[in-house]
Every structure is written in structure tokens, then in C-alpha cells.
């Protein structure tokens, strides 16, 4: 493969990007990350964790 054909292929590859697919991958990664951060027991980096009851509240 020559440098010219490679650069042509590179240019074509960059113009062939489908932006909706790109956005879908980015949003899926963000959603998975935020969900896991939220579900983390010891506290997430961004989102407050789920409230967890370690003891049963006393009934009156």
C-alpha cells in the first residue's frame, strides 16, 4: 500500500463516519458509566449513590 493510497483511504474513512452512530456509541458509554456510578455502593464520583438501609427501621 503506497502512502498516496493510504492517505486517500484515510480521507475517505474520515468522511464516511456516520454521526448518528458516533453519537449512539458516545451516549451508550455515558449511560453505562453514569448508571454504574449511581449503583456503586461506596459512593459514585458524579452521582449520589442509591440509599441503602443497613438496618430495618424500628416500627412503632
Amino acid at each position: 500500500m503506497t502512502a498516496r493510497s493510504w492517505s486517500r483511504g484515510l480521507r475517505e474513512a474520515l468522511t464516511a463516519v456516520r454521526w448518528r452512530r458516533l453519537a449512539a456509541i458516545l451516549m451508550l458509554a455515558a449511560a453505562c458509566g453514569l448508571l454504574c456510578d449511581w449503583l456503586r455502593k461506596e459512593g459514585g464520583l458524579l452521582t449520589p449513590s442509591l440509599p441503602r438501609f443497613t438496618t430495618v427501621p424500628a416500627q412503632r
Binding site: 456509541i25 458516545l26 451508550l28 458509554a29 455515558a30 453505562c32 458509566g33 453514569l34 454504574c36 456510578d37 459514585g44 464520583l45 458524579l46
Partner: peptide
């Protein structure tokens, strides 16, 4: 830190 690993994993 939250999203980059998932992006790597998916890619």
C-alpha cells in the same frame, strides 16, 4: 473517569 472506560470497552 466514569465514561471513558465504557467508551474503550464498547469501541
Amino acid at each position: 473517569a466514569v465514561t471513558l472506560p465504557w467508551l474503550e470497552l464498547l469501541c
